[in-house]
Simulated assay, not measured.
Amino acid sequence: MTQSRRMLVLRAVVEDYIRSQEPVGSTSLTKAHDLGVSSATIRNDMAALEDEGYLIQPHTSAGRVPTEKGYRYFVDRLATVVPLSEAQRRGINSFLSGSVSLKDALQRAARLLSEITGQVAVVASPSLAKATLRHVEMVPVAMNTLLAVVITDTGRVAQHGLAVGTMPAIEAINRLSSTVNEQCVGLSLAKAGEKVRAIAESAGFEEVRDVAQSLADAFGSMALDERANELYMSGASHLAHSSSLADLAPLFDALEEQVVLMKLMSNLSEESTASGVGVSIGSESHTPGLLHASVVSSGYGRNTRTEEGDADGSAASIDTNDNEPIAFVGSIGPTHMDYAATMAAVKAVARYLSAFISESGPEQ
């Protein structure tokens, strides 16, 4: 018995179980797959795979089902992410091309991914910590308060109140805004904060020194506040059709823990394999509510360059170090999800969001 044939049997079991969600027996494998050996030989292979922890045999059935270890082997050896269908590609194009803002695009992406996979879709807005400054405006809104409106390269618009002891003349405020926009565009919010502090101490800005210091503090605060990420979620109703009632309560609790979910999916997207997609199966997430679920995640970025056709998952990306993910898109479903299809859908939506950010983000 060869190891390679045994693993072909494992792959066949995983594929059949994903499709039927019924324990898989040697007889059905023999009929459905051309493995070149008898049913008895396959039965021996399945017994060996069970001994090795790749399969388990429910006590109520003669068939076997994959374990987490079995799914992990299967996922790690998905050599290519299959392209989406033409209809699905048109669907993504249609949904995202009609977006009127970044928020609208992210909401649409979550709804669409949920429809494609039949699972829970989660899309995070771009992180302010990884954004760069595109424009800032400061507008007096009260006797001692200015509103700073900060626009980033990813299309995020953040607002921050600036308290001042004495309101400077509007001309001085406008001059400060112009200087900040001239010197800080393209800088991260953290570096922009440092630059604004230097501007505050330079000659000619004495009247707005307090305003500049408050703006620098605001930039620093926004750069550190990962909670500013918003999560757009869709498809929770799909869970009722794919999970047992015993699994639902902890799973919904896990979905409510957005900080935990965000950290998990962000880490997955950054640790993704050559396929550009990260997968966590069951207990690998170290999250009790996701014990019977799998998470598929991919990062999207501002200037991701891809080969022609990659948006449908059919070609490899050509990322550079300058194009690290600024946010993620992912799908959550049962451990018996269709991994190949889910990975393709997640990757495709991530590619379209990258293109949207790159082409349209600054205008949002």
Rank of each mutant, 00 (worst) to 15 (best):
A344S: 15
L189W: 02
V150S: 00
G155K: 01
L106D: 05
E324N: 08
E86G: 12
D253M: 11
S294T: 00
V157F: 04
A40P: 07
S234C: 04
R64F: 09
T166R: 12
L128R: 15
A47E: 13
A110K: 05
E68F: 11
L264P: 02
K191V: 12
A198V: 13
S266T: 12
E307I: 10
L102N: 03
L255R: 04
H241Q: 07
T67R: 03
D253P: 05
N44W: 08
M262K: 14
L8V: 10
L245Q: 11
A327D: 02
E194T: 10
G155Y: 00
Y73C: 08
L113Y: 12
A246S: 09
S266N: 13
V349F: 03
R89F: 10
A148P: 02
G282N: 02
P325K: 00
Q213R: 14
T30H: 11
L113K: 05
S297V: 01
I18V: 15
L224P: 04
T273R: 15
V81P: 06
D34M: 09
E15W: 03
S85R: 11
V259E: 15
V211I: 11
P58Y: 10
E137K: 14
R227V: 05
L264I: 10
S202K: 06
S125I: 05
V81A: 10
L224F: 11
M143K: 15
A192L: 01
V180I: 06
V295H: 00
L187Q: 04
A47K: 15
I151N: 09
S221Y: 13
S114F: 10
K69S: 15
M1W: 08
N267L: 08
K263R: 14
L231I: 06
